[in-house]
């Protein structure tokens, strides 16, 4: 066990040198590097935290936007649905109204045609009947149809009951005789005489020709009509024909 003091002093110097060298080459750089790494890691963590926050905000914003868009879409769909519904209703109403109008128009048209047809038929039948009756009466008897009509008229005038006669001559001194054909003067005087005999001497009698009297003679006044008129028969016939024509229509409706 010996101590070499030269070696001891050399070793002290050596050790101090080693301390300095290691401080310079080992501890300093390593600790600096570690500190820097820690700083960078904490920086990155901060950065990551920041980014996460931003991302969350972004995500929230997007969610909100999506919700808004969804709501908007729903609203638009609802509006469109409502509009379509209204449009449909409107179109249906329009179509219904048009159909109603068309049906009404068609009905009126049919009605008009029916009336026209019946009118024409009545007139035609009347005329034909008039011609036929005249022809038949002319062929059956020597007397002219008008004369026969005049006879029938006078007969009816004579068989008139008191009440009707009074009503005819009650509030007028003038009576009109309507005929389908032109009466000659002899017939007129005969008629006038007959009227004077039956109703009163002081009555004026006027003669006129009338379309509506298809065939025959009519004396009207005080709400009473007497005479013989083919139009009555024709009206009956027309009513019968009309009834027949209306029957299928009624059945159809």
């Amino acid at each position: 066990m010996q101590i070499d003091w030269i070696t001891v002093s050399a070793q002290i110097v050596n050790f101090l040198l080693l301390v300095w060298l290691l401080k310079h080459f080992l501890y300093g750089p390593v600790i600096r590097a570690m500190n820097r790494r820690e700083e960078r890691i904490s920086e990155r963590l901060d950065e990551a935290r920041e980014r996460e926050k931003e991302a969350q905000q972004e995500a929230r914003r997007y969610e909100q936007k999506t919700a808004e868009l969804e709501a908007q879409r729903e609203e638009m769909l609802a509006t469109a649905r409502q509009e379509a519904e209204e449009e449909k209703k409107r179109l249906l109403d329009e179509a219904r109204t048009e159909a109603h109008e068309a049906r009404d128009e068609w009905r009126q048209e049919v009605e008009r045609e029916r009336v026209d047809f019946l009118d024409g038929l009545r007139r035609h039948i009347g005329r034909n009947f008039h011609d036929l009756a005249r022809k038949a009466l002319g062929e059956l008897a020597d007397a002219r149809l008008e004369a026969q009509v005049v006879e029938v008229f006078i007969d009816r005038l004579k068989s008139l009951d008191q009440e009707d006669a009074r009503a005819l001559a009650a509030d007028t001194d003038r009576l009109a005789v309507a005929s389908a054909f032109e009466l000659d003067s002899a017939t007129r005087s005969r008629l006038t005489r007959a009227i004077h005999d039956e109703l009163g001497k002081n009555l004026d009698v006027e003669y006129r020709q009338a379309e509506e009297v298809v065939c025959g003679l009519v004396l009207a006044g005080g709400g009473v009509r007497i005479g013989w008129n083919l139009a009555h028969y024709l009206d009956d016939l027309a009513a019968a024909v009309e009834e027949t024509l209306a029957a299928p229509e009624a059945a159809r409706e």
Binding site: T7, L18, L26, P29, A33
Partner: peptide
Amino acid sequence: TATVAYTWLVMALLVLVSWLVTRRLSTGT
């Protein structure tokens, strides 16, 4: 003495290794 010589050897080794390692230090991950 051999003591000093071996001390120098150890020192040289330590410094060399330290220098080699700390020459390129990474501060990343």
